[in-house]
């Protein structure tokens, strides 16, 4: 554990990139590991089109989630953030820019994230 008494020692923020060809489409992932949480961007083009934040609450079994940037009618970033917050018990920021053409794609993308979480938990 790091000494946090004088506030000078925190875990280093680290960045991790990976990508995967899913359903004929290269999907890129960018993770920023933070203290007590992480930021995850998922997309096929380098655009930041939305941002959702989610974290667990002791009053509800489902984590709270809110969209701070982007179109509120797109529920994908919120629900992904919520599920990842539940799984990791961390504060999760998610930006999700995958064209909603195939509903299967979303599922496969999420599975890829879960795989990375299992293989490389140190990056999250």
């Amino acid at each position: 554990m790091t000494e946090t008494q004088n506030g000078s020692e925190f875990d280093q923020v680290s960045v991790h990139n990976f990508s995967e060809k899913i359903l004929e489409q290269v999907v890129h992932f960018h993770v920023m590991k933070l203290s007590g949480g992480f930021f995850l961007w998922v997309g096929s083009a380098p655009v930041l089109s939305n941002l959702a934040v989610s974290m667990s609450s002791k009053y509800d079994s489902m984590p709270l989630s809110t969209l701070v940037l982007g179109d509120p009618s797109n529920t994908a970033p919120n629900s992904l953030a919520q599920r990842l917050a539940k799984k990791t018990k961390k504060q999760v920021f998610v930006s999700y820019s995958i064209p909603m053409t195939d509903s299967n794609l979303g599922l496969l993308v999420e599975n890829r994230i879960k795989k990375e979480l299992e293989l490389h938990p140190e990056h999250f």
Binding site: G7, S8, E9, F10, D11, Q12, V13, V15, H30, M32, L34, S35, G36, G37, F39, A45, P46, V47, L48, S49, L51, V68, L69, F93
Partner: peptide, 30 residues
């Protein structure tokens, strides 16, 4: 005397900067 971290990320429509002395994102401002 305070450890400060900066992480800059380039998107085509945004520059995302995290400036932190707590290792967290903290307050998000556009």
């Amino acid at each position: 005397g305070v450890s400060t971290q900066v992480i800059c990320t380039e998107f085509s429509n945004y520059i995302f900067i995290v400036l932190t002395q707590y290792g967290k994102i903290g307050t998000l401002v556009s």
